[in-house]
């Protein structure tokens, strides 16, 4: 019996697609936004979180990330830690990082929203 390699190409493609999709979802960050919020508010929060993530990548992950495996990783900050950061941001605490003094209040808020609503996946970190 002669095998036609052509037959296996679609299967291989499908398998690799599934594989890539899995890889992609693994790194995808999801958010814990309360379900009963109105749709518009949910969208607004999601958008804030998305912006926060980008800002986090640029301004924070260079340090808060290297210990958890790669520049884009976010450590599992506890809610107390996030609150403390929030307080420090607001106060322009000179002990907190220079970059937080530079960001606008809206930008700082976005970073905090991202950290607060991010769904923590225990396996990855």
């Amino acid at each position: 019996m002669k095998f036609s390699t052509n037959r296996y190409i679609p299967i291989l493609l499908l398998l690799s697609a599934v594989f890539f999709l899995q890889c992609a979802t693994r790194n995808k960050i999801t958010y814990n936004i309360p379900k009963d919020l109105p749709e518009a508010k949910r969208k607004e929060l999601l958008e804030q979180c998305r912006k926060g993530k980008e800002l986090y990548k640029i301004n924070c992950s260079e340090c808060h990330g290297i210990f958890t495996g790669g520049k884009d990783k976010v450590p599992n900050f506890t809610s107390t830690q996030i609150d403390n950061y929030s307080a420090k941001f607001l106060r322009h605490d000179p002990k907190s990082h220079a970059v937080t003094r530079q960001m606008s209040p809206e930008q700082l808020n976005e970073v905090l929203m991202f950290l607060r609503y991010r769904k923590i996946n225990k396996k990855t970190t």
């Binding site: 301004n59 970059v99 530079q102 960001m103 606008s104 209040p105 809206e106 930008q107």
Partner: peptide
């Protein structure tokens, strides 16, 4: 904040 979105 006079810079707004350009804060950074």
């Amino acid at each position: 904040n006079t810079k707004g979105i350009y804060s950074l």
